[in-house]
Amino acid sequence: MNGYVEAGYLAVLGVLGGYSALLLGRSKKLKKVLLPVQGKKAQDESRPTE
């Protein structure tokens, strides 16, 4: 085509793709942090009843 069109589409797809990847990575990392903490909390709460 003419270079500009490709650049425009690339910019949109690249930035949106990059941001999505960032979001996915961040939520994965946070889930990892949150899971053991919550699991521990659940254990602590369940212990007295055992």
Partner: peptide, 20 residues
């Protein structure tokens, strides 16, 4: 919509971690 849902969830996680 997809990004908002994801970002919102992340914000929720961060808030939760902060509280904990």
């Amino acid at each position: 919509a997809w990004m908002l849902m994801h970002r919102y969830q992340i914000a929720g996680f961060e808030q939760k971690i902060l509280d904990i």
